[in-house]
Amino acid sequence: MAKAKRNKKRVIRKPEQLMNLSNGFSGINKIVFDQIDKKRKELRSEIEHTYEMSKAFIPLDIRNYVENGVTLEKELIGQYPRAKTLPYHITIGAYEFQDLAIALNLSHIDVLVWNVESTIYLEKEDEYEHVTASVPFNRTLPAMTHVEFLGGKRDCKIELGHGLKKVGWAGFNEEVLKELKSHKQFDDDFGIDHIEAVIRADVKFINTAAYEEFLRVQDWVNQGREVAEHELRALWIREQEATLKAFSHGLEDVA
């Protein structure tokens, strides 16, 4: 004997009843959403802080590492002729994945203050003697971009100490050479053997996305060089593919 079907009475609920029902029914989802919201608030709070980052390096070693890396990745780089940067595993790996190198190369931060501590090591050698000397070069610089730090900024004011100031920054390499030329006691027979530099910077993250990516990269680094190189290489490739896709869509729009 077939059972009779009962027509369900349509229930019309007021907005506040729907809200109460939803909260009761999706309690697990609400917990997840609350956790996500809490995490976002924590991240927003953390990027309000100023952090100190640093990188120690020998410029000659950096140049050699990058040149070798470009040679090894010639095929990869050739696939993306529009790329504005070299692969990250090269440019960051050259600095042994130090925190300031990560944040600068991936554009995670604004630098509020740059502190440069470097030493220029000189040598002079002839058939009679081998002479070595060193010249310190230390500067504290105001806020400027990484590009300006390397290439120069005309309108910045720099404290030189002892009440002396100067206007303008010619870029790191140029300023080092200018400092060396100011020491007249070293004649042209002296050549630069190498330069050792430590850069410390007071920085702030530009947004939570940048901060989260920085933390991910640090996690890769903590897992070892092989993981860091693999993941940074993959990150660079993803960015280039996204750029190509966007460029392709742009051409289609124009057409």
Rank of each mutant, 00 (worst) to 15 (best):
N222S: 10
E127P: 03
L122M: 12
V217F: 00
E212F: 01
G24S: 09
L18G: 07
L104D: 00
D99Q: 13
D99E: 15
N105S: 04
W220V: 01
L164Y: 10
D253W: 13
G151V: 01
A255H: 04
K165V: 12
I199C: 09
I92G: 02
K157I: 04
S248T: 09
I102M: 04
E75K: 11
L18V: 00
T132E: 12
R225I: 03
E226A: 10
L141C: 11
F172A: 06
R154V: 06
I58L: 08
G224L: 00
L86M: 08
E213N: 07
L244F: 15
L164E: 09
S22D: 06
H146Q: 03
Y211L: 00
Y65N: 10
K74W: 15
E239W: 03
V32Q: 05
L244C: 12
M53Y: 01
I199M: 09
D37P: 11
N29A: 05
L112M: 04
L104T: 00
F149R: 10
R10M: 10
K41M: 10
L100S: 03
S45C: 07
W169A: 02
S22H: 06
L112G: 06
L164P: 13
Q35E: 13
C156R: 08
R139Y: 02
A242C: 12
K124T: 14
L141E: 05
R225C: 05
F214M: 04
E52N: 11
L106Q: 07
V176E: 01
V66T: 05
I192C: 08
K124N: 13
A103I: 00
N222Y: 05
E229N: 05
G161Q: 02
S22W: 07
I58G: 06
K30E: 12
N173T: 12
Q218I: 06
K84L: 11
N138H: 15
R238G: 04
L122R: 12
H249S: 13
D219V: 00
R40K: 13
R13N: 13
E127T: 08
V176C: 01
F57I: 02
K55E: 08
L100E: 00
A94W: 02
N222K: 10
D99P: 09
K157N: 07
K9S: 15
S107Y: 08
V70D: 01
R200D: 11
